[in-house]
């Protein structure tokens, strides 16, 4: 599934990285605990989270994640978006809750890393 397809399915907004919309993702990790993402998200290229602080972007950077999806209407601030830009990580925001977001993407063929 491409980032563009995820954006459409989730009725999400591109906060950064529309030019990366055609990149493909296969595995996704979702968590609000960044240590869990670091422990188990190794082969995932998309991070779904309801946590909203700069360490989310840092965590994504360390794992070479290409797209962060913020759920429950969470809005990263300018500092976080600047960081995402600097690292070339696309950022989407959706109003859906975590479970719904994950379910919708699963239905469209995305899978967890393990």
């Amino acid at each position: 599934m491409t980032i563009r397809e995820m954006q459409k399915v989730l009725d999400a907004r591109f906060l950064y990285g529309e030019e990366m919309a055609d990149l493909e993702a296969q595995f996704v990790f979702s968590s609000d605990m960044m240590s869990d993402v670091l422990a188990y998200g190794g082969k995932c290229s998309v991070l779904i989270t309801g946590l909203c602080n700069p360490q989310v972007v840092r965590t994504a950077e360390m794992l070479d994640i290409i797209c962060i999806i913020f759920v429950r209407g969470k809005m990263p601030d300018d500092n976080m978006l600047r960081l995402a830009m600097a690292k070339g990580i696309a950022v989407l925001a959706t109003g859906h809750y975590m479970f719904t977001t994950c379910g919708m993407l699963y239905e469209h063929g995305l899978r967890g890393g393990a």
Binding site: D32, M33, M34, S35, D36, A39, L51, N53, Q55, T59
Partner: peptide, 15 residues
């Protein structure tokens, strides 16, 4: 509440 403190840091470092 900042996303850390799950007690996975040192085990991750070892892993």
């Amino acid at each position: 509440s900042l996303g850390f403190g799950a007690g996975m840091g040192l085990p991750n470092m070892k892993k």
